[in-house]
């Protein structure tokens, strides 16, 4: 049975999820890769307000292809999440991030922050970018336009299939 989820999340939504659960996710998520995470953390260092409010939200680690005519976005599968391990604990603790979507295992520091703050890690299917693009119904760049594919996009998802790979108790499928 697939669990039907919608963003934003409360802490109890997240703590109810268990590693191995199949999920379909709808609602708004933000994209971000290492270059965007690096900037977000630099802004936190400087006490600046972030360009997006991540409280209760999900970040999808993706750098999409440009949108062909008539489509909101191009191919948009997950990138390797481990590259965000240096930044994620801080974003989880300081910004109230509730979910991350990517591919591949996460480091201990990330899992600690997830347990402490109540955050989940979903695996999207790496290399299925065309299939995933069909679950994205709207897309717009909301920050760091100069980063090209690494800019922060606001995406509207419709029933994106995911698997809970690491839950908020630290249980992991990896």
């Amino acid at each position: 049975m697939k669990k039907v989820l919608h963003t934003p999340f409360s802490e109890s939504d997240i703590r109810a999820l268990k590693a191995g659960d199949r999920v379909v996710l709808s609602g708004t998520v933000y994209t971000g890769r290492d270059a965007a995470h690096k900037r977000l953390c630099a802004m936190l260092d400087n006490g600046e307000t972030l360009p997006v409010d991540l409280a209760g939200q999900a970040i999808y680690f993706v750098g999409p292809c440009p949108a062909p005519p008539g489509r909101p976005i191009g191919s948009a599968g997950p990138t390797t999440s481990g590259r965000m391990d240096a930044y994620s604990p801080r974003i989880i603790r300081q910004c109230g991030l509730r979910a991350m979507i990517g591919k591949g295992d996460r480091g201990e520091g990330v899992k600690e922050a997830m347990k402490e703050a109540g955050c989940v890690y979903f695996a999207a299917t790496g290399g299925a970018g065309a299939l995933i693009a069909n679950s994205i119904i709207e897309a717009e760049v909301v920050a760091f336009d100069d980063l090209g594919p690494e800019a922060i996009y606001k995406l509207e998802l419709k029933e994106l299939p995911l698997v809970v790979a690491i839950d908020a108790e630290g249980n992991s499928l990896y």
């Binding site: 993706v62 191919s75 599968g77 970018g129 065309a130 594919p149």
Partner: peptide, 13 residues
């Protein structure tokens, strides 16, 4: 989907 809709198989082209 990629073949029919001419979308890249993976976003990392």
């Amino acid at each position: 989907i990629a073949r029919k809709e001419r979308l890249p198989l993976c976003q990392d082209t």
